[in-house]
Write a protein that binds this DNA or RNA. Structure first.
Lengths: 370, 370
DNA sequence: TTATTGTCTGTAATCGATTACATTGACATT
DNA sequence: AATGTCAATGTAATCGATTACAGACAATAA
């Protein structure tokens, strides 16, 4: 079949390297070289080619190029859900670094659906991306079987995955959780509850360890009835609130494994007439963005999310290079910052008995950005 | 060059259709057919091929396939920023529809950067996607020159673009804004301010028209000093608050072109000791998610975002079909829903002068008259 | 002069799939 | 027996780029 004349086509559409070559009176090899390494082409020829490209509006076909060079200059980031803005600063940082290096970022929102995960796994196996960044807490379903390691460079951010020998960039969850609970203890709390993360989530487990560390340090026994299973989602907070309310001897403070959970815990309590921090103190983890709209201001641990994203992306770039052997997987662990707001009450030395209602913190809106 | 043995490679990696064909003792054409249209292959052969595929972990190379069939089954959605959760429900709906039809969605976050836009424009021109969904309010820089129409099916959601003859799915912004301002008028407000959207944003302009319509209907002159330029971003709200505070004769109510602006307007006022709705009434537009954490509850217009996303995606699927000619661009305009919360005060018939007895507890939610 | 070097360019193989067309053989029809 | 039909499969062209290799030519060295 003869190639159709390009004259009837939209500018820049359907134009191939052969059309440009013909127009410039050179071979396709020369056109390709003029684009990829201009210094290897004489100045006169380059001008000819440039003109032909400008006249035709030629853009190289990506599929053809990808096929030939066996690389797409694309990275896939798998996130469990974009409804949660927790991931946005990470992804922005990742995108900054990658695009600087000429890579594109595909955000794959799995929404915790196996089906969608399988879709993205296929994308990976089909060679559509040169690298993968996981923020999901587990390997995509289809790759679990096949073993993702060695397939394509893969990096974990803000989440460790058991058994996977992959580079990971995350927060020092255990020590941060420890500091957070220490903070509660310093304000007189002894009976402290905990809403956990998802069962298999290592970061959540580390946060629970930090919680136990802090209690152990002051010789307080861990009470299983004060540990409520959560899932990093709002629902976990409501469920925990029900457990909390059912308790005869309630804790004076609660450490939620993340902010989303903490916020919904507080809202559920509010619906039952309990207020924070007057009736219970609550701390969260992550310092997500929309907390600024939430009242009372939640005391929490800020993860250096942008920094983690940046470092992980830079590391991934190293691993995607084909001219150098990939370095062994690194494990980067950054410290968190305690953000003190108004969700914790200082109950002094009376070992956790709620006092007569007294306001220790002004319930004003948190400070505005300049 | 001889093809290297696959034995040393990771399972499923580097396996081509030829490897499968060889193993199954058939031709590559048969393998391809067994995958694409199993009914065209005998049962025995199909079993052979299936087994070879299972044993090798073969996944067809996407670049090769895309090159041959001139299609990628990918759609690009361009958004100005994922920090704003406004887009999330739209994108989720779009993704639902597309993935159901076997298409993938690439979310391109331009963050209002020309450079990033150019990057995505190149993606389009390079044939990396079969369709485009724009939520950015303007065409990507590089396509502006080249003329995006006809290049690849493109659909607009929640935003009309001047001069572009493209299908658009958006809210009935003008009539919705009209109803919103009518709502203020019904509660006694006559002197009403407006924070606009970005200058070139048609939806913003429509909202301003609706605002003017409502004022005209009651014979109130539009006062230019009560119209403050905004940008749909939080900054616009703070700036408007400064203008508002500088005013000698302040309006009793303000209509912000979107919620992000409204929220920051309210926060800025709060920082100066003014409270909503006691000192000013405020309404927004969009009903974004995190409003649920904001106090006071913002009265606003809910756009049917998921519905718009769904319809747009379904329309785009039609346009991407190659077996049927593309229908002419449609313009779908859906009604909005007034969400009544607690940011508007009924000031009765006294034509907009603040009442003397003022609420002293700013935290309490005001009760609205039915 | 001849050999050598280096620059520029073209020819053709290649990447891994899909698919138009050709071939084969089994079976039915005449 | 001759012919036609149909299902199943194979052969080879094709998609649009990149790049190994080779050739042409000019400049330089011997």
């Amino acid at each position: 079949m003869r190639r159709p004349s390009t004259s009837s086509l939209a500018f820049g559409h359907g134009v191939t390297i052969r059309d440009v070559a013909r127009r410039a009176g050179v071979s396709t090899a020369t056109v390709s070289r003029a684009l990829a390494s201009p210094e290897r082409v004489s100045e006169a020829t380059r001008a000819l080619v440039d003109r032909a490209i400008a006249e035709t509006g030629y853009t190289p076909n990506a599929s053809a190029r990808n096929l030939r060079v066996r690389s797409t200059r694309m990275v896939l980031a798998l996130v469990p859900g974009m409804t949660n803005t927790f991931f946005t600063p990470i992804l922005n940082a990742v995108e900054d670094v990658l695009s600087e290096a000429g890579y594109g970022l595909i955000i794959g929102d799995t929404r915790n659906s196996r089906e969608r995960e399988a879709h993205y796994a296929r994308l990976i196996r089909a060679g559509q991306v040169d690298g993968v960044i996981l923020l999901t807490g587990h390997l995509p379903a289809e790759n679990e079987r096949a073993g993702i390691e060695g397939l394509v460079p893969t990096t974990l951010i803000c989440i460790d995955i058991p058994r996977a020998n992959l580079p990971v960039f995350h927060a020092a969850s255990r020590s941060a959780a420890r500091r957070l609970v220490d903070y509660l203890i310093a304000r007189g709390h002894r009976r402290i509850g905990h809403i956990t993360g998802p069962k298999n989530n290592l970061e959540g487990l580390e946060r629970m360890r930090g919680y136990k560390d802090a209690l152990a340090a002051i010789g307080v026994e861990v009470e299983p009835t004060l540990i409520w299973p959560g899932d990093f989602m709002p629902e976990g907070g409501s469920a925990a609130a029900r457990s909390f309310l059912a308790l005869a001897d309630r804790p004076t403070a609660v450490f939620a494994a993340n902010d989303e959970t903490a916020v919904n815990f507080i809202r559920s309590l509010a619906a039952s007439g309990l207020s924070v921090p007057d009736d219970v103190s609550v701390v969260g983890f992550d310092d997500i963005e929309y907390l600024q709209f939430f009242s009372p201001g939640l005391t929490t641990m800020r993860q250096p999310r942008a920094e983690l994203g940046r470092l992980a992306a830079e590391d991934l770039l190293q691993r995607m290079r084909r001219d150098t052997p990939a370095p062994p997987p690194v494990r980067v662990r950054l410290e968190c910052e305690l953000i003190e707001r108004h969700s914790v009450r200082d109950i002094g030395a009376d070992k956790g008995r709620p006092r007569a209602p007294r306001r220790t913190e002004p319930k004003t809106l948190p400070t505005l950005p300049a």
